[in-house]
Nucleic acid binder design. Structure first.
Length: 425
RNA sequence: GUGGGCGUAGCUCAGUUGGUGAGAGCACCGGGUUGUGGCCCCGGAGGCCGCGGGUUCAAGUCCCGUCGCUCACCCCA
C-alpha cells in the first residue's frame, strides 16, 4: 500500500477468530499442567544479555547471530529472550525456590524473539509453551515430562506425532565422544562446507546435517550412546524402559543433538507432518549443569518447549459453538435510550448482549445480529415502548414472542438457560 | 547473510504475443418490505496494477533497480 506503517518483519498480528483458538490451546495446556502439578510463572521479556550468553552457549547460532540485543539508557546490555529455560533457572535461583527440598515444577507461556529470516513455522517473535522440572535427576521425572508434553498435544487433538529421543550423556561422556567424533570427522573427506565449519566450532552439530551426502558419511560415525558412562547408560535405559511400559511409541535418534549447549542426558523432539521444513512442534531435554553454570548449586533440571505457532498450524479444525448472544434492535431515539439501558442490565445479568451503535434501519440491525451469531434479537420501537413490551425474535427459526419490558433480563436469562440445556441433550 | 517464487480492490485471484476505457468471486453499503436477518435479484462504493527509473507511438504486461511478502538453506520451537 502507500507508506502506512507495517508490523516489523517476522512479527504478526493475531486476530479473531484465530486469537480465540490460541486461548483455547492455552486453556487446555494450563489444565494439563495443573494435573501434573506444574505451576505458572510469568517472566520478563527482557533479561541481561549475559544470562543467555552463559547458558545457551556462546558458539550457538542463537547467541552468535540471532539475539535481539541492545544497550539501555543506563549502559546495560539487555536481550529480548530467545528462549525460556535460562530465565526459569534465573528466577528459580533469584527467588530462592531451590532452597526447599524436592522437585519444583513450573510452566510458562509467552513470546520469544530470535533475529532470523522468517519462513514457514519460524518467526522473529514466536510463542512457546514451556514446562520445566528442577531439582531432581531421576529417569521417572524425564518420563513424566515427556508424558506431560504428549498429554498436552494429545488433548489438543494432535495425532500422528513422532517422538524422537536420544541421550547426550553428561559432560564426561561428551568429552569422550567429541574426541572420537573429531577424529572420525578428520579422517573422512567430502563434508559439505557447513560441516567443515561445524567440525571446527562444534563437532556435534555435524551429526544432524541435512545433506544426504554428509548423512551417508555419518553412517559409520561413532554414536553418543556408545560413549555413555554407566550412570548415563542406566538413566537412559530406564527412560526407554518406562516409555515402553507405558506404551509410548518413540524412535531412537542417535544423531539428535539439539542446538543449545546446556543439554545433558535425555534429549527429545516431537515432530509432525504438515509443517514444511520446520517440522519440530516441541523439543526439550535435561540440563543438569545449567543451574550451577548460572551461579547456583549443582542441581539438575529437565524441560520442554512447545512451539505454539507451529502447533496452531497443525491443529485440527474444531468449531466451538458461539456463546449465546442477545442483540438489541432499537428504532428511533426514545427506543435507543431504553435499549442502551437494557443493554447494561442484560450484561449485569451475565448475558452477552450487543446492539448497533450506528442508528440504522431494523433490517440493517437484524442483519448485524445475524452476522454476530445472536440467538435472540430484542426488537424495541415506539409501539413496544408505548405498551411497555418488546418483541423477542429467535434468530434460528424467526419465531417472535412479546415479553414485558419489566423483568426482561431475567426472562431472557431463562430462555438462554433453556436453550443451553437443549443443546446439551 | 544466500537462493527460488510472488507483489493488481479489505480478502482470494483473473488479466491472452505490450494495443480504446482496469476485471471476477467473497466481504461491505443501499434497494427489492411504511418496522424484520439468512437465500435470491438489482444497484453502489472501493485500485498512483508495491515504489523508482528505462525501452516504446503505446507498459498491469518487457528490462533494470529498490522495498515488501513467501518458501528454502543455516539453525531451532
Amino acid at each position: 500500500m502507500t507508506d502506512t506503517i507495517r508490523a516489523v518483519r517476522g512479527m504478526k498480528d493475531l486476530l479473531p477468530p484465530e486469537s480465540r483458538r490460541w486461548q483455547q490451546v492455552e486453556a487446555v495446556s494450563r489444565e494439563i499442567f495443573a494435573r501434573y502439578g506444574y505451576q505458572e510463572i510469568r517472566l520478563p521479556l527482557l533479561e541481561r544479555t549475559e544470562l543467555f550468553a552463559r547458558s545457551i552457549g556462546a558458539d550457538t547460532d542463537i547467541v552468535a547471530k540471532e539475539m535481539y540485543t541492545f544497550t539501555d539508557r543506563h549502559g546495560d546490555s539487555l536481550t529480548l529472550r530467545p528462549e525460556a529455560t535460562a530465565q526459569v533457572v534465573r528466577a528459580y535461583l533469584e527467588n530462592g525456590l531451590h532452597l526447599g527440598a524436592g522437585v519444583k515444577k513450573f510452566f510458562t507461556i509467552g513470546p520469544m524473539f530470535r533475529y532470523e529470516r522468517p519462513q514457514k513455522g519460524r518467526y522473529r517473535q514466536f510463542h512457546q509453551i514451556n514446562g520445566e522440572a528442577l531439582g531432581v535427576d531421576v529417569p521417572e521425572l524425564d518420563v513424566e515430562v515427556i508424558l506431560l508434553l504428549l498429554d498436552i498435544l494429545k488433548h489438543l487433538g494432535l495425532r500422528d506425532l513422532e517422538l524422537l529421543i536420544n541421550s547426550l550423556g553428561c559432560p564426561v561422556c561428551q568429552v569422550d565422544f567429541k574426541a572420537r567424533l573429531t577424529i572420525f570427522l578428520a579422517r573422512r573427506e567430502g563434508w559439505c562446507d557447513d560441516c567443515l565449519r561445524r567440525r571446527a566450532a562444534n563437532p556435534l552439530r555435524v551429526l544432524d546435517c541435512k545433506s544426504q551426502n554428509c548423512q551417508a558419511l555419518l553412517m559409520e560415525a561413532p554414536l553418543l550412546r556408545d560413549c555413555l558412562d554407566d550412570d548415563c547408560r542406566r538413566h537412559y535405559d530406564r527412560v526407554l524402559e518406562l516409555l515402553s511400559r507405558f506404551g509410548v511409541p518413540y524412535t531412537e535418534q542417535p544423531r539428535l543433538v539439539r542446538g543449545l549447549d546446556y543439554y545433558t542426558r535425555t534429549a527429545f523432539e516431537v515432530t509432525a507432518g504438515g509443517l514444511g521444513a520446520q517440522d519440530a512442534v516441541a523439543g526439550g531435554g535435561r540440563y543438569n549443569g545449567l543451574v550451577k553454570e548460572l551461579g547456583g548449586p549443582d542441581l539438575p533440571g529437565i524441560g520442554f518447549a512447545i512451539g505454539q505457532d507451529r502447533l496452531m498450524e497443525i491443529l485440527p479444525e474444531q468449531d466451538s459453538p458461539a456463546p449465546p448472544r442477545i442483540f438489541l434492535a432499537a428504532l428511533g431515539p426514545p427506543a435507543r435510550e431504553t435499549a442502551f439501558s437494557l443493554l447494561r442490565e442484560l450484561r449485569r445479568q451475565g448475558l452477552a448482549a450487543e446492539f448497533d451503535f450506528q442508528d440504522r434501519s431494523l433490517k440493517a440491525q437484524l442483519s448485524l445480529a445475524n452476522r454476530l451469531g445472536a440467538s435472540f434479537t430484542v426488537i424495541l420501537g415506539d409501539r413496544e415502548l408505548a405498551q411497555g413490551r418488546v418483541l423477542v425474535r429467535r434468530m434460528d427459526g424467526g419465531e417472535q414472542q412479546t415479553l414485558p419490558l419489566d423483568g426482561l433480563a431475567a426472562a431472557l436469562a431463562a430462555l438462554i438457560a433453556r436453550e443451553k440445556d437443549e443443546h446439551r441433550v
